[in-house]
Nucleic acid binder design. Sequence first.
DNA 1: CGCATTTGACCGTT
DNA 2: AACGGTCAAATGCG
Length: 364
Amino acid sequence: MDETIATILYGCTLSKEMEANLSNWANQRDVLLSKTEEIIAVFSNVKERLIINQQQEVVQEWLSNSGHQQALELFHATDQNMLSDHTATAAAPTGFTVHGLPQESDQMMVGDASRDSSRVAAATSSSSQRQRTRCRTGDRDRRTLRVGAPRMGNLELPPEDGYTWRKYGQKEILGSRFPRAYYRCTHQKLYHCPAKKQVQRLDNDPYVFEVTYRSQHTCYMSATAPTVPPPSVEEITHQTTTTLPPPAPLILAPPTSASLSGHWLSMDIKPQGDQAGTSYTTTFDIQRDFGHGSVGSLASLVTAGVGGGGGVGPSGGRFGREVDYQPVVDMADAMFNSGSSSNTSMDKIFSSIDDKWDTAEKKE
DNA sequence: CGCATTTGACCGTT
DNA sequence: AACGGTCAAATGCG
């Protein structure tokens, strides 16, 4: 617990540092980006620690009271899975950079994408008219990430990611217990948005979805497109590399500057080309959650640190380019709080986004 | 009525 | 031929 406190203090120090230097850094997007990421990473680390502690206590207590041996095994089994994920990530830092735009790193990819052996250049656009787009060879255009399913509620629901998707297929996949669902962007027709995603629950861990994204959203680029798009890949790439909950290493070095600004943190988003053919890399895990409250709003924390006003919510003091950063902070906040019993931040964010999208669309 | 989901069929890739 | 991705008709929902 001492380490946790130390980490919190370190996060506060970083926030103060940012506040103190805000005027200097106001025009230095890169600096702001890296500092923001650092702060987010530190506090997500804290949250992870707290949640893990809480989970273990609660589960142990529950088990000792009721003796659910199977559940105990399940808990440890899933924990092992996450642990291996995290340690694997932590041990392979080459793909993680605080400043984003890392090199192509297949290590980052999990599941299907890495299973595909042949990688032929995917020069195809997804809008070749009559011909169906078969991109099994074009798997460069695929990126996979894993997201945790809420421990409560409907496990069948795919995790939200800020975009609106329309399901167009579902298929039983050989060797998988769970079917794979196929989604395309709801705005595909309106804006010819080629984005697609596949969602599949992991065999060995039903609490984790494996989401494979293909192509990039272009829907918001239209003049008639929704006015408040979720943070696009391009935005994220150029403005900030969102540090969504890092694959929190369960074994952490003390919160030294080196370790915290180091490699374990960070999400990785990388454009590879343009428009429909683009692909990107996102890698993050969402903490497992047994339905306990969250430890607060990262957005608020960051906002407070930056603005110095301690404001909570979007009206708080933000960067000069708040439009640039807020979606990212919101997303991070939502991600940090997702799966928790409060379970509101993600809904808030995305419902507001969806509302705007919907209304914008209905005005058409 | 419009939109989303379901599901069997179709088709390209391996 | 098997598999995976997509299509499109049927169906459901608000």
